[in-house]
Each structure stands twice: as C-alpha cells, then as structure tokens.
Simulated assay, not measured.
Amino acid sequence: MARGISDQDVFEAADALLGRGERPTIERVRQELGRGSPNTVNRHLDAWWAALSDRIRGKSAESLPPPLVNLCRQLYEGMRDQAAVEARRVASEIESRLETDRRELEAQLSAVVVERAAVSSASDKFMQEISALRARTEELVEERAQLQAQIAELNAANRRAEASSQADKATLTTLQSQHMAEVQRIRAQWEGNETRWLKEIDHLRDEAKRARAQHEKEVRTLQERLRLADQSLAASLKEKGTLQTELARIDRSLQKEREARLRAEAAHAATRAVVSRLRPTSPRGGHPRPLKKPSAPPQ
C-alpha cells in the first residue's frame, strides 16, 4: 500500500531543491519524493513558501547559502517583471476597448444624422403633398363657380326669352320648356358633379389625414430611436469614464509597485553590506572561510 506524504517530507524535498539552486515546484517535489498526489504536494508546498521568509529572517546572515540568496533575488525579479508585463497588457486592453467604444459612438452619431435627414425629407414630401391637395381643391372650387355662372346665364336667357316671346305663346312655351329641360339637365349635372366633388374633397381630406397621421407616427418613431441613441451614447460615455478611472487605479498600483521595489532593493543592498562586514576571514588574512551548509531547520 502506497505511503502518504507529510508536510515534513515536502519541506525537506523543497529545501533540497532550493539548495541545488532549483525552484521548488509541484512536479519537482513529486519527482524528489517519488510519490505524492499533486493536490497534497501543492498544499504542503504553499505552507513551505509561506514559512520561507520567516525561516530566512530567523537565520543569521552567515548561515544563508549563496544559492538561496540568488534564488530569492531571481524570484523577486521574476515576480516584478511579471507584474509589469501584466500591467502593460491590462493597459493595452483598456486602450483597445476605449478605441472600440469611440468607433461605435461615431457610427451611432452617423446613423442619427442619417435618420434626422430622413425625417426632414419625409416632412418636405408631406408638405408637397399638402400643397398639391390645396391646389386641387382650389381647382374644384373654381370649376364649381364656373358652373354656377353658367346656370345664372341660362336663367338670364330664360327671362329674356319670356319677355320677348309674349307675341308667340306657343313658341315661348316651347322655348321655355326647352330652357327648363336644359336647366334641369345642367342642374342635375351640376348636382352630380357637386356630389362627386364633395366626395373627392372628402377623399382628399381623408388622404391628408392619413398622410398626416403616418407622418406623425414616423416622426414619433424617429424621435424614439433618437432618444434611445442618446441613451446609448450616454451609457457609452459613462463606461468610458469608468475605464479611465480603472486605468488611473492601475497606474497608482504600478507606482506603489515601483516604490516597493526601490525599498526592497535598498534593503537588499543594506543586507549585503551587513553580510560583507560580518563575513569572517582566515587567521592568515587569506580568503574568507566558506560558510557551513546549514542543517535542515527543525520542524
């Protein structure tokens, strides 16, 4: 039956890898131990990383092996470079989103201009139709006046015929009958035309009402679309402000990261100076004695 691994096993394997100048990873620790599941190794390795700084601070400068110091420096520089790369990537994505939003806003503004032009064109067309209907109505009124003038002329001719045909009663009666028949015919024609004209005028009025209603409907629709476009524009401008605020926050985080790096480099330089002063020399003034490899810390 396979034996499980403890945190002590993972700590010793990670210390051995670090002593050889290798970065302890889940796979390397498993290879060092020859067993262990990735989840178990990962849990114990996280604890090892968390305790590493305390273990290093707990040791004197003389007991720190150079590979450990170099590896810690490399880990710090790697994390610093990775943070800078990530910050540049986020800034690039934000700039790309801002550019995309700008293009969309320009397209929406162009669509609004086109719609406004369409509304103006529809209004001009409606006014032209109204003018044509008004002209047609005036023509019908003029025709009606002409027919009424004709009837008046016939009535006058009838009266003159009655005055001039007293001598010939039969002729007058015949002429009167003819004139009356003609008047009735013209009157019937006029009444028929008047009815037709009234119907046509009513039809034209209905057409004008429908055209006006359609125009008002189209205007309301275009106004609604314009309102929605204005709302979309306001939302896009608000999102742009949010993105700019996020970019400013990232810039502040990068500034804090740079300040932390400078403080860490200053602390590292001070530590190296202390190590240089504390490093012992040989009794004959030769090369400094090598540091003893520290034993594994008690768990």
Rank of each mutant, 00 (worst) to 15 (best):
R103H: 13
E32T: 06
E194G: 02
D168Q: 12
E246D: 07
D7F: 03
S110W: 01
R196C: 00
P280W: 03
G21N: 08
V114F: 03
A149P: 11
Q8D: 13
A107Q: 07
P67I: 02
R144S: 15
V69Q: 06
A132V: 08
R136L: 11
I250H: 03
I130N: 07
A149Y: 08
H179K: 14
L204I: 00
G241V: 01
D54R: 07
V141N: 15
H215E: 09
I201F: 12
P288F: 01
A264I: 01
L133G: 07
Q223R: 05
L175T: 13
R20V: 03
R159E: 15
K169C: 09
R144V: 09
S276G: 04
E27A: 04
E182W: 10
S37H: 15
A14G: 07
L254T: 05
R144D: 14
T271N: 14
R160N: 07
H179Q: 15
V69L: 01
N70Y: 01
K59P: 10
D206W: 10
D251E: 11
A296N: 11
L243D: 08
V113R: 04
A170G: 00
L109F: 00
Q166H: 10
H179W: 12
R263N: 12
T173A: 06
G285E: 06
R97H: 03
G19Y: 09
L243G: 02
E218K: 06
R3A: 14
A266I: 04
Q148G: 12
V10Y: 03
R212C: 09
N193W: 03
S253K: 05
T242H: 10
E95M: 03
D81W: 00
Q178I: 08
V113I: 01
E239Q: 06
E12K: 08
E138V: 01
E95S: 11
A266Q: 10
D168W: 07
V274D: 15
T171P: 06
T195E: 11
E27I: 04
D124G: 12
N70E: 09
A181Q: 14
S164Y: 03
L105A: 07
S131F: 02
S96T: 10
P38L: 03
T174R: 13
R103D: 14
A61K: 00
G241C: 00
A157N: 13
R97G: 02
G4Q: 14
P294A: 05
R23V: 05
E182G: 15
L71G: 03
A152M: 08
K169S: 13
A107H: 07
Q31P: 12
